[in-house]
Nucleic acid binder design. Sequence first.
DNA 1: AAAAAATAGTTTAATTATTTAACTATTAAA
DNA 2: TTTAATAGTTAAATAATTAAACTATTTTTT
Lengths: 150, 150
Amino acid sequence: MQKRNIDDLIERYLSVSFMVMKKAAALVKCELDEDMTNDQYYLLRCIKKKAKCTSTELASLFGVNKSAITAMTNRLVEKGLLQRTRDQNDRRVVYLTLTERGDKWITETEEKIHKLVESFITKFSEEEIEAFIQTYEKLVRIFQEMEGTS
Amino acid sequence: MQKRNIDDLIERYLSVSFMVMKKAAALVKCELDEDMTNDQYYLLRCIKKKAKCTSTELASLFGVNKSAITAMTNRLVEKGLLQRTRDQNDRRVVYLTLTERGDKWITETEEKIHKLVESFITKFSEEEIEAFIQTYEKLVRIFQEMEGTS
DNA sequence: AAAAAATAGTTTAATTATTTAACTATTAAA
DNA sequence: TTTAATAGTTAAATAATTAAACTATTTTTT
């Protein structure tokens, strides 16, 4: 591939990923209750998927410091959506789990977000969206490999 | 397409787009000077591409209120990377343009970011990445149409 | 077993990003 | 020529983030 062509693809990728990132954030926000943020949604989503989760894991998933997670989880604990429990074997570890209200909220919200994604994903053919997601998943694997080596 | 299958694709899309969003943000951050943020990079990038730009345009691109843009541009003006100039015909309008330092910074940073993107984009075949970006671009157009109708 | 090092998480202080509501200045419409 | 609308700013509040210092606990080393 020529240098010109690669530079062109890179530029297109940067523009389009910026626009989708910002637009997707705005669309997700519309589906949330007034007092909830996108990051709070993503945090609760991660915890639901893992069932139980530590600050360290979340910090790694979000790519931020652990103290950022402490601050976020504090707000969610105050809102009654999350609870902390200590590991009995290793008392340094704190597990984060959903409260009943937290579970109810994330379940309802996931339904709204699924409908949102469905509203545009169905505008693509199954082949196109499958190929798109597969490349996306490959990108995740490449990122993970880069992490391991550097 | 069956309901099962769509739900599965939606779930994969949500997971993968979250992971790429967070990971990409972390990688971009690594390329920036200590005192610069990702949003500041994206803001300067947008202004460079448009040459001159208003708060209203940026607020729409970023999907935030105009006052958020005022705050961000204030910081960049204080840093000497951006300047404001009033339109002579319509004195309500303020144009944002790069200072010489701002232009130098974004040019150097774009080079770093391009190298970063190149480091993973070249792990795909030209066909795969072209198809990926085309679907991405189609997604942007769908978002824009949704904006028009709703 | 005692001392040193590593790990998990929190606190604190500072900065950035964001929203909403009220505001100024200017232009366009009635 | 009032009245509307538009462009942008200000102010107060909240959320997200980092870096550095800290507590508590567990693991490793000597």
